[in-house]
Design a protein around this nucleic acid. Structure first.
Lengths: 110, 110
DNA sequence: CGGTTTACCTAGATTATCTAGGTGAATCAA
DNA sequence: TTGATTCACCTAGATAATCTAGGTAAACCG
């Protein structure tokens, strides 16, 4: 059974890219950022996050660099690349189109 | 690679249930209805539709009955059950919550 | 020095949807 | 009357995204 906080499939990459628009961030912080800005409605699991980051780095959308976190832990900082910014545009547009389409169906007069 | 008309995962049942609010319909008509009301933005594939209908009937959300279509073909007409109407409410609420949550993240100030 | 938090990682399961095949009956044009 | 097209249904297997459930190690705190 799907949990209430499960993500809508296909939106994770977009959310991560969007989080990185405000500047480089490490994985753990991205997770928290998404949780907080969604007012706790979204909870990205670590088992989803890290493979996604790995995949997106391979795609060239983000760039990773080891550093030290604000809590003095070693952390991998991710930066949005130019390709990542373009990808965010594509995914964001797609999301808006889908949202609109679904709402057209949902709001169709009875 | 995901196609532009691919559905957002998790929304198919909701769309089908919603289509049936206007009255009983056969599978093929449900497919076309979703395509049309979404202004061609959504295209449910038959290989997604029929298994979904089967699954939803097993869940008790819809009820099937053989009949004859407006084109004089044999067709299976689906009707929304009371449980299906409740399920639509649940899924619809969940969709709105998710949409809002994602848009909170997407619209977060830079 | 033991527990908690931070931060990362991975294998395998789950599940939804799509791809790509198929059937058969009705309609329509040649 | 026959061949092509449309309607309507069905299914097996592939694909892919996310989650579950495990794990490591270092830093901090009492």
């Amino acid at each position: 059974m799907k949990d209430k906080t499960d993500l809508l499939q296909g939106t994770l990459d977009m959310l991560i890219l969007r989080a990185l628009v405000t500047g480089p961030m490490h994985g753990f912080a991205i997770m928290n950022r998404i949780h907080q800005t969604s007012e706790s409605a979204l909870q990205v699991e670590q088992g989803s996050l890290y493979p996604a980051l790995y995949r997106m780095e391979a795609q060239g959308w983000i760039h990773a660099e080891w550093g030290v976190s604000e809590n003095n832990r070693r952390a991998k900082y991710y930066t949005l690349t130019e390709a990542g910014r373009r990808q965010l545009g594509v995914e964001s547009e797609n999301w808006n189109r889908m949202c609109k389409a679904i709402n057209l169906v949902m709001d169709f007069p009875v």
